[in-house]
């Protein structure tokens, strides 16, 4: 029969360090996409300035019912134009899609493999070393 694993005790400094490290990782991942967004927003603003024309409900493709509701909401054609013309771009970049699939799939594969190895240790200690 093998002896059960006895983990070391962690001091207060180590506990504080580990907690702060996780927080730093979280804040970094929150901020990172902003770098991409800042560049995209600058491009959008430049494109909007280049194509700016006087908007009408007809040029914005709004029927009579839609126009009435926009007006009730406090919008005129100029103000509504930015909402109506703001559209997502769903063009798929195959390279980015493949990278994303590999990252998500690889993460779960790594997780299940390592977890299984660790779980076998847990079961061995729990059921073999009573």
């Amino acid at each position: 029969m093998n002896k059960n694993y006895t983990p070391p005790n962690q001091g207060m400094f180590g506990q504080i360090f580990d907690t702060i490290l996780v927080l730093v990782l979280v804040y970094s991942s929150l901020m990172l996409p902003l770098l991409f967004k800042a560049a995209a927003k600058a491009e959008d603003a430049a494109a909007a300035a280049a194509t700016a024309v006087k908007a009408t409900w007809e040029s914005l493709g709004q029927n009579a019912v839609q126009q009435a509701q926009w007006i009730k909401l406090g919008y005129d054609p100029d103000k509504a134009a930015s909402l109506i013309n703001s559209r997502f771009d769903y063009t798929i970049d195959p390279v980015m899609l493949i990278i994303t699939i590999v990252v998500v799939g690889g993460y779960f594969w790594f997780m299940l493999k390592v977890s299984d190895k660790e779980y076998r240790e847990v079961i061995r200690e729990k059921f073999d070393n009573k």
Partner: peptide
């Protein structure tokens, strides 16, 4: 971009757990 950035967080946290935190865990 948000999807990849958040995945990066969980991947780094997992590596940190395997290399550093798991040694403090009582297996049984």
């Amino acid at each position: 971009a948000s999807l990849l950035s958040i995945m990066a967080f969980y991947i780094l946290a997992s590596i940190w757990f395997v290399l550093r935190r798991y040694k403090y865990v009582k297996r049984a």
